[in-house]
Design a protein around this nucleic acid. Structure first.
Length: 331
RNA sequence: GGGUGCGUCGCAUAGCGGCAAUUGCUCCAGACUGUAAAUCUGGCGCCUCCGGGCUUCGCAGGUUCGAGUCCUGCCGCACCCA
């Protein structure tokens, strides 16, 4: 096996320029990119998720990626294969566990072809799943159960969990319904939530991230993680520019198309950010309550659109913030 | 010039005379075991030995044990009549 176990990870908040860096490095070091982005996996969601435009001509340089890599064909951008993009329809349920399995197959395949896997993305949890080799309990979502539990107040769910698995109840966020339901789901199936043994980060002094570079390893692989940090000012500027550009590129049309393909507004909204706000705009449900009185009088189409873009920019900034909080969390 | 209404902590809102004062948004900080662009928590007048202390609701007076809440005047804004 020897040296073929090194993986590069590039992480950072949205609009920090991860993709460009990843592509540059891939070119220089014979790499292939595994996207760790929980929204770029969906087909038909291109502008809103900021996919790097795909190369016109298909076909790969030698050696051709194996088809068996999770059955996933990469798409190429700037001549570099990108995996885990456009792999499913927005209708399909997807999650970390699936991502982990598929991505690991892809990584194996890349390593076998003696190339450098570069994991690049902003979905911290998904990256952690691979780097820390989190073993998710083999309990698939039980939709009927979830639907039932959904109706209960969180306090009740919490006391249910407490009876089933006091240990998990002890460290769970007692007000987070989503987490509570999943924990109960696991308990019903296998008794209790397995204790997670997260691999402690091998890096010294890497808690001061970002910017960070840190080494860590699990049983299979070694990782070099590079975190990208921009000043808040730069980040916010980038976000504003990017969001405005996306609207020019047809962001609204993209959402309209998704709906025409039969996706409910509600489903589209669940993807967050622009996908959350645009359906409201299209349905004329944007609330102007926050606008000043003078502005409200204007009430023009242009105003509505400006307001929409404003909302999306804000959402995007908040998102970046949550990402950064995740990246600098202490394990 | 006459009439009416309104001025509350960034914005927007609530507030039978007992209130440091409601709610939403923004903002700040944080969490994260198969939804992670999701989901969730805390803070948001100032100070604090966390018991409390201090200063607030356009401005200035007044009535009251007590006023954001009532009265008078002023300033500003909105609308209506001229």
């Amino acid at each position: 096996m020897s040296i073929l176990n090194k993986i590069l990870v590039i992480l950072g908040p949205t609009s920090s320029g991860k993709s460009d860096i990843a592509i540059k490095i891939a070119k220089k070091f014979n790499g292939e990119i595994i996207s760790a982005d929980s929204r770029q996996i969906y087909r038909g969601m291109d502008i809103g998720t900021g996919k790097t435009p795909r190369d016109k001509k298909l076909g790969f340089e030698e050696p051709r990626p194996s088809r068996r890599a999770g059955g996933i064909e990469p798409w190429t951008a700037h001549g570099i294969p990108h995996y885990m993009i456009d792999i499913i329809s927005p209708r399909t349920e997807y999650n970390v566990a699936k991502f982990k399995k598929q991505a690991e197959k892809v990584i194996d395949d890349i390593l076998q072809r003696r190339k450098l896997p570069i994991i690049c993305g902003g979905t911290g949890f998904w990256i952690q799943a691979i780097v820390d080799d989190i073993n998710f309990p083999e309990v698939k979502p039980d939709w009927r159960l979830r639907k039932k539990l959904e109706k209960y107040p969180t306090a009740k769910l919490f006391s249910m969990l407490k009876k089933m698995d006091p240990a998990r109840a002890n460290n769970i966020d007692s007000k987070n319904k989503v987490r509570l339901i999943r924990a109960i789901e696991i308990c019903k199936s296998i008794g209790k939530v397995p204790v997670l043994d997260v691999i402690p980060s091998a890096a010294e002094g890497s808690s001061q991230i970002p910017p960070l570079t840190s080494f860590s390893r699990n049983d299979k692989w070694m990782f070099l993680q590079i975190g990208i940090k921009l000043s808040q000012q730069e980040l916010h500027d980038n976000i504003e520019k990017r969001v405005k550009l996306r609207f020019k590129q047809g962001m609204i049309k993209e959402v309209r198309n998704l709906h025409q393909q039969g996706l409910s507004w509600k489903k589209i909204q669940s993807f967050g950010l622009a996908y959350f706000w645009i359906p409201l705009y299209l349905q004329k449900k944007l609330s102007f309550g926050e606008l000043r009185a003078e502005a409200r009088k204007e009430k023009s189409l242009a105003l509505e659109k400006r307001w929409l873009i404003e909302k999306v920019i804000r959402a995007e900034k908040n998102y970046a913030k949550r990402q950064i909080t995740w990246f600098k969390r202490d394990k």
